[in-house]
Each structure stands twice: as structure tokens, then as C-alpha cells.
Computed example of a mutant assay.
Amino acid sequence: MSRPLKYLLIGLMWAAVAGYILWSAAAARRQRAAREVTGMVVDVKDSTSQGHLVSTAQVRSWIRRSGLRTVGAKVDEVDLQGIERLIADNGFVSRVDAYVRYDGTLHVDIRQRRPLVRLLTDGWNCYVTQEGFAFAAPRSSSLYVPVVTGSYRPPFPATYAGPVRSYVEERLGEIDRRIEELEREKYPYFRRELQNDENIRALRRMRIKRRWWRLESEKEFDKRVEELRSHKADLRRRYRYEARLVQEGIDAISARQEAERRKQKKLEKSYEDFVKLLTFVEFLEEDDFWRSEVVQIVAHTAPSGALEVDLVPRSGRFRILFGRLEEVEEKFDRLAAFYRRGLGRLGWDEFATVSVKYRGRVVCRK
């Protein structure tokens, strides 16, 4: 057999194999499309001992109320992307995959977010993950995570769902744009200021000379000098008034800009405190003893503007005044030593408050 004929036969053979594969795939697709969905399986992948944010019954209820076709519909009629969007719209769901297997079963695999803390402060009821993703607490959620109460106000609205850092950066960007817009509002005042400065320079250049060629008398000359002085005085008052108006306008806009900058600093400080709070809760969760001992974190803003926390312990009837979220490990070491050497001898119900706010000391009050 010649080489060209051999290559031709091999090419035809591979073409036939490829054609068969394509035909088989198309036939399988047609057969699958004609098949009906026989059942639905909802699997929440990461429900743990902490509890759950979403249950299979909830997911089935969402799909049923949405009107999306599932069981009994042709496979091609099932809107898999619509099902995924419907479930993903809930902020506590991190990922959802919907697909139909060859046996006709619709599978919905869900991964829920893993909250680090629950904020139950004034007006807020939400979970926050370790990465700083916030979402409203579902009505039927039952997660065993640390709870923060008190008058603390997080750096995002109570209805917000998403990465907190993204929200803060967006707000900071909006403030930057407002400051730039306010700067542009100064431009007309700057033009007025330049024109007024030019008028003042022109005023200073105004001179009067005696008209010798007209045989002007000294009396006539003095009269003209007096008229010029009066005119210049009027212009000087007008230009000074204009300068004051211009400066007042610029100062008013500058004050508004400064107010926006204060908002920026306040928001940045609020976010910094928020990160400190998450780090603090993470520290508690990593320590077996304090994770079981601290049952509640009460957060509030001190008169100085700093974020401070109190801790409600499981043991005793006292409250731990922890103070600022600084030197956290050293404060807990002091507190642990006091637990072992102080409360063990004096009694767990002896004090109303135990404070570790002050460096190197534990201050107790009855």
C-alpha cells in the first residue's frame, strides 16, 4: 500500500470516529433534553456543629415560591442559572451550583458563609465573617458564634450585605469626589479674586497731572485731586468689600471640605475599630478557655472616641471591663492570673466589676 493511500485511510478512520462521537453526544443531548426531572436534592455542604444559616426546607420553599420549573419539567426547561441567582441573592450563601444528572435528578449544592461574630447592637442584627463580609442574620438562623451587643455602631448600614472594606472604600471615594466638586465651586471665586486684584493694581496706578497747557489754576488742580481721592476711596471700599465677599465664599466652601475630611477620618477610624473587633473575637475563638468563658461582648464608644468593650463571663456575677482593644494578650494574661490567684480565694461573687483597662493592674469594685 502506498504511503499517500495509507494516510488517506487513517484520516478517514479518524474522521469517522470523530463523527461518531459528535453524533453520540448530540443523541445523548437530545435524549437528556427529552427526559423529565424526576426529583430534587438540596445539599448544604458546610453545615457544622456551629449550626446553620440555611436549611434544605428553606431552599425548597424559595424555589417553589419563585415559580421556577423543577420536578416534572423537561431538563431543557429548567432554568439552572435562575435557580443559582435566586439562592445566591441571599448574602449568607457564598456559592451555589445547580445541575441535572443523567438520572434526571436536579441537584442544588450550597455553601454557606462561616460567620465569625454576630452583631446585635443598636439597630444592627447581622453576621460578619472572618474576611469582613457582612450580611443580615436570617430569621431562622441558629449559629453558635460570639455575640456583640451594646451601643457600638459598625462602619456600614444595618441593611448592607457584602465586604465591609468595599463599602468603606466606596464611601471614601464618594467623599473624595465631593471634595473635588467643592474645589471646583471655588473657581468662580478665584476668578473674581484675580479680577479684584487687577482692579486694585489699576487703582494704585491712577495718577493726576496738572494741565499746564490749559493754564489750569492751582485751585482747579486741587479740586480735581480731591475728586480723584474721593473716587479712589469709593473704589477702595468697593474692592475691599469684594475681597471680603470672595474670601467668605472661599472660606465657606473650605469649611464644607473640612467637614467632608472629618467624615473621612471618622469613617476610617470606625473601620479600624471594626477590624480590631474582628481580630479580638478571633483571638477569643482561638483560646479554648476564653471561648467558653466569655458569653457576651458589650461594645461601646468611650467619650474619647475609642472603641471599648466589656465582657460578660460565664463564671461569677461580675462584668469584666476590658477597655480598648489594645495589648489584648497581656490583658488576658493578667485576667487569667487574677482568676487563679484572686477569685479562687476571694470568691466569684465578691465583686461587681473587674477591670483590666489600666496597664499592669487589675482593679475590682464591689
Rank of each mutant, 00 (worst) to 15 (best):
S2A: 12
L5W: 11
L5Q: 09
K6R: 12
L12K: 06
M13N: 10
A16I: 11
A18L: 13
Y20T: 15
I21G: 04
L22I: 07
L22G: 06
W23D: 01
S24C: 01
R30L: 01
Q31G: 00
R35W: 01
R35M: 11
G39P: 01
G39T: 06
G39F: 04
D46G: 08
G51R: 03
H52M: 15
L53P: 00
V54R: 09
A57R: 10
A57F: 13
S61P: 05
T70N: 07
G72H: 06
D76L: 03
V78H: 02
V78F: 00
G82V: 08
I87S: 06
A88H: 08
D89N: 12
D89K: 11
G91F: 09
F92V: 00
V93M: 09
A98G: 09
Y99H: 14
V100I: 15
R101H: 08
Y102W: 08
D103N: 15
H107Y: 10
H107C: 14
H107A: 12
I110L: 10
L116D: 02
N125K: 03
Y127A: 02
T129D: 09
T129A: 04
E131A: 10
G132P: 03
F135V: 07
A136E: 06
A136G: 06
S140H: 13
G150L: 11
Y152S: 03
R153V: 10
P155Q: 10
P157V: 02
P157W: 09
P157H: 12
T159F: 12
Y160N: 09
G162Y: 07
G162L: 05
V164H: 14
E174F: 00
E180H: 14
Y187R: 14
R191G: 02
E193I: 04
L194E: 06
L194I: 13
L194G: 00
Q195P: 00
N196E: 07
D197L: 10
E198D: 06
R204W: 15
R204P: 03
M206P: 03
M206A: 10
R207H: 14
R207Q: 14
E216F: 14
E220S: 09
E226V: 01
A233Y: 11
R238E: 15
I250E: 05
A252H: 10
I253R: 05
S254K: 10
S254Y: 08
R256E: 14
Q257Y: 02
E260P: 04
K263P: 11
Q264E: 13
K266H: 06
L267V: 02
Y271Q: 06
L277I: 11
L278G: 07
L284F: 13
E286R: 07
E293I: 01
V295N: 07
V295Y: 03
A299Q: 00
G305W: 01
G305A: 07
A306R: 12
L311P: 11
R314N: 12
R317M: 03
R319W: 07
L321V: 08
G323Q: 01
E330C: 01
L335Y: 01
A337N: 08
Y339A: 01
R340I: 10
G347V: 06
D349K: 11
E350V: 10
F351G: 09
F351W: 03
K357F: 13
R361M: 12
V363N: 11
R365H: 11
